[in-house]
Amino acid sequence: MKLLVVEDEIAAGIFLQEGLSEEGYAVDMARDAHEADEAVALYRYDLIVLDVMLPGKDGFTLCRQWRMEGVKSPILFLTARDDVADRIAGLDQGGDDYLVKPFAFDELLARIRALLRRTLSEPVPPILTFGELVIDTNSKKVWRSGELVSLTAREHQMLEYLAFHPERLITRTRLWEHVWETGSEPDSNVVDVYIGYLRQKLGRERIETVRGQGYRFKHEVESE
Rank of each mutant, 00 (worst) to 15 (best):
Y43R: 15
Y43W: 09
Y45A: 06
I48Q: 00
V49W: 01
L50R: 02
M53D: 04
G59P: 04
C63Y: 05
Q65H: 02
M68W: 01
M68P: 00
E69Q: 13
E69V: 01
V71G: 01
V71A: 03
K72V: 04
S73Q: 07
L76G: 01
F77Q: 01
D82N: 14
D83K: 10
D86I: 04
G90P: 03
L91Q: 05
D92Q: 03
Q93A: 13
Q93I: 04
V100K: 07
V100C: 09
K101V: 00
K101I: 06
P102C: 06
F103R: 10
F105I: 11
D106M: 11
L109D: 12
R111Y: 08
S121N: 08
E122A: 09
P126L: 10
L128R: 08
L128Y: 11
F130H: 10
E132N: 14
L133H: 09
N138A: 14
S139L: 15
K140L: 11
K140A: 13
V142C: 13
V149I: 15
V149P: 15
V149M: 15
L151T: 09
A153K: 04
E155G: 11
Q157P: 05
L159K: 07
L159H: 12
Y161R: 05
P166G: 02
P166D: 07
I170C: 13
T171Q: 12
T173C: 11
L175Y: 12
W176C: 11
